[in-house]
Each structure stands twice: as structure tokens, then as C-alpha cells.
Design a protein around this nucleic acid. Sequence first.
DNA 1: AGTTAGTTTAATAAGTCTATTAATAATGTG
DNA 2: CACATTATTAATAGACTTATTAAACTAACT
Lengths: 207, 207
Amino acid sequence: MDINSEKSMEQTILETAEQMFLERGFAATSTTQIAKSVGCNQALIHYYFRTKENLFNSIFESKFKLLFQRVFDTTQLENLSFTDKIKHIVETHFDILSENPKMPMLILNELSRQPEQLKILKERLHALPEKLISIMSKELETEIAAGKVKNCSFIDIMFTIVSLNLALFTMLPIAVNVAELNDIQLKFLLAHRRAENVNIVLSYLRP
Amino acid sequence: MDINSEKSMEQTILETAEQMFLERGFAATSTTQIAKSVGCNQALIHYYFRTKENLFNSIFESKFKLLFQRVFDTTQLENLSFTDKIKHIVETHFDILSENPKMPMLILNELSRQPEQLKILKERLHALPEKLISIMSKELETEIAAGKVKNCSFIDIMFTIVSLNLALFTMLPIAVNVAELNDIQLKFLLAHRRAENVNIVLSYLRP
DNA sequence: AGTTAGTTTAATAAGTCTATTAATAATGTG
DNA sequence: CACATTATTAATAGACTTATTAAACTAACT
């Protein structure tokens, strides 16, 4: 009897709902379906979270914050050259998305749908990227001045990194279907694009 | 009295529905809402298209085909150098998305939701990219052999182009909100990223 | 004017969805 | 043990959905 088998109903609902929201999105997931999947009465969902929106937001906000924190974590960057820092950022971002491949679509869909939620997140998290941006921007200037890196802004670099990594995971379900990839081929594609995305960004930085 | 003011009801429904599907997606758009927006009875939607799925698919398929054709059109590429061909492809793809900024999200959402529809489109359109791919792959080989371009596959180049352009438009609603961009700033961002995406791909190709 | 084909509407069936309420079961506490 | 709190269920209200049916309206042709 693991202590986890006594997992609270509230926690089970949260975890089940998260999977279902990731799989089908907010609109296409009903509290009835969640309850059925959890194996409890539908009213219980509303007992714990009152509204479906509440349930969604509490899941979404914590998950988003968690991922956001990891993306902007600077502790692993110390003692790395500028190029290696960039490489590390691309790879870390890629790996976080790898572990949460359905999150990009959910974020894009639900933050476009709920601009209020976006404002809340923005206010709550705006301080997080600052450290990374300040460190990298300063170092980028030095590199540019030394002629080691092409003249560009760190924001543009970030934009490029996020674009390359994000797009891969938003297109993945379609790509897998079109190319009829099996698990091994999928794994290969991911490893290949992970390396390629690093290459692309580093090529872009060459003066 | 323009002859267009006598636009058929069927056409009006198609056009209105297209806008609403683009704006809110399939699940969040009801035939009731479409009818209301068109200004007709809700049963009329079903009279012309029988099901909501039918209506959606006939809009989606024709639109998708149209865009797909433009992306893989090769007529404008003749007499251009390899580098200029790549530049032209990136810019054309970007411009097509610019004119249809909401299509990327709709495609990503609905093709993931409807794998059958994806198979139909795949069978119907698989011949279209062939010409472009064959031309470009051949030329790419020559360039690589001459040491003018880094060793890579055309599929990888395509993947990169689509990623960079697609991601911009999927992130755009969020970016505009977060950065609180006005129309002029938005226009500037788009022009800037259009040029930047070309730069990124061309940098990547440098040996 | 009368018939017909095509268009549009009103009414409604059958189902799902969110959310609430009241009743019951389980658990903890003095 | 008795009481209070918490968890869970059944039942249901009320709104909204897709889709169908039959009736009404419109325009064209004979």
C-alpha cells in the first residue's frame, strides 16, 4: 500500500484534468468527461473548483510558471563561453518542451483566448526574464564589439530560439502523421532538430 | 446595384463562417452563431451544408489547397541564383501567412483534431511539393559540391523556413498583447522579422 | 393563373454542458 | 458515543448545441 495510492481526490482531478486539457484543449474538455475519466461524480469537480475556468486556471498557471522559471534559470550558465551559453539556452528550452510537448499548443490557444489571464501572468512573471536578459545582453554587446558575433539584439536571438523550438512541437502531431513516423524515427527527428536548432542560431550569430 | 450585392446566401454563409472559424476555431463556433452573424435562420446553414463538419471542411479544404499551391509555386523561381531562390521562398511563405495570419493556428488545431482530413489532404496534394523539392534538392547538391553551401538537406531547410515563419504568426496575438504593440509597431515587427528570417536561413546555409 | 422547384423559416427533438442543491456517506473531534 | 465537518452522490435547472421536419414563402415557367 503505497502512500500515493491514497492520493487525494482533489489531486487526482487536477492531474487528470491537466492531461485532458493538454490533449483536447479547454473548450473540448467538459467537466463531465473529466469526472468520468477520474471515476467520480461530476459535481465533485465543481465542489473543489467551483468552475471549470477555475480548475483550468489553477492548473495552467502553476504549470506555466514552472516551465517559465526553468526557461529563464541562469544558474547553469556561469563559466560558459557566450556561444556555449546560447547553446545551453537552446537545448534547455528544447528539452523543457520535449518533456511537455503538448504545452505549446495549449499556451498559444488559451492565452490568445484569455487575454486577462495573460495580463495576470505577465505581471506576476515579468521579473523572471530580467536577469537572463541583462546578463546576455551585456555579454552580447562585448562579443559584438570584439567582432566575434554579428550585430543583433538579444531579443531577436530569443525570438529565433523560441520560434524554432516551439514550431517543431506545434507541428509535430501533423509531421508524425504525414510522414507516418514510428517511435524510433520520431526520436531521431527530435534529436536531429535539437542539434539543428542550435546550429541555426549559432550560424546566425557568426559575424 | 453591384452584382455582388446579390451575393448568394450560400456564399455569404461560407465567407462569414470562414472568418468565425479563423477567429475562434471549430469547436468554439456554433452554427447558431454563424446564422446570427449572417442574419439568416440557423436551419439554413444545415440546408446548404447538412452538417457543421461539412461546412468547415469545404471551407478549410479549398483555403488550404489555395495556400498550399501558392507556397509550392515554382514559376517565380526561374533565373534566380540558388540563394535568391531560398530568399524568395522564405519571403513568399511569409507573405502568404501575412495575408492569412490566423490560418496557421487553425491548421495546427484542426489537422491535429481530424487526422482523417489530414490523410485526405495528403493524398490530394502530395504531388504539389514534388516539383519544388526536386528542383531545389538538385540545385542544393550542386551548391554543396561547389562548396558554396553547407552540407544539409532541403527538407531541413524547408523545416527551418516553415518553423520561423509559422511560429511568428502563432505567437503574434500573445506578442502583441505582452508588448502592447500598436499598429505601427506591429507593422515594424513584421517587416523586421521577415528580413530576419531570410537572414537566419541564409546564415545557416553558409559553409 | 397555376404548377413546380428552390429557398427560408418556425418548431422542436435529443443531446450535452455548466453549475447548483439537497441528501447521504465518511471522517474527525470533543 | 454524539456532534460537526468534510467528501461524495443523485437529481435537476437552465442554457446551448446540432440536426431534422414540415410548413411558408419566392421566383420562374407554362
